[in-house]
Amino acid sequence: MSEDFNMTMRKFLKQVGVTSQQAIEDAMRTAGSDATAGKDFSAKMVLTIDGLEVEHIVTGTIKGRD
Rank of each mutant, 00 (worst) to 15 (best):
D26I: 05
F12C: 06
I24W: 05
D50S: 15
M45T: 15
T30V: 10
E55T: 08
G32K: 10
S20Q: 05
M1P: 11
L52Q: 15
I57R: 13
E53R: 12
Q21T: 03
G17I: 00
I49L: 04
L13R: 08
I57S: 09
E25N: 15
M7R: 15
T59L: 11
A37M: 05
D40T: 08
K14G: 05
V18S: 09
A31M: 11
A23P: 02
V46S: 11
T30L: 14
A37K: 06
L13P: 14
T36G: 00
S33N: 08
D4W: 06
I57F: 12
A37T: 04
G32E: 01
T30D: 07
V16H: 02
F12M: 03
L47P: 00
D26T: 10
D4I: 11
M1V: 15
D66V: 08
M45Q: 14
V18H: 12
T36W: 07
L47T: 06
G64L: 08
T19G: 04
M9T: 12
M7Y: 08
D34V: 04
S42L: 09
L47F: 06
G60V: 13
G32L: 03
S33Y: 01
T59C: 05
M1C: 08
S20W: 02
A23I: 03
E53T: 04
R10M: 12
V58L: 01
G38M: 00
V18A: 08
Q21P: 05
T59Q: 05
K14E: 09
S33L: 03
V58W: 01
R65D: 01
D26E: 10
H56S: 06
A23N: 05
M1Q: 14
G38N: 00
D66S: 08
I62Y: 09
V54I: 12
K63Q: 10
I24P: 13
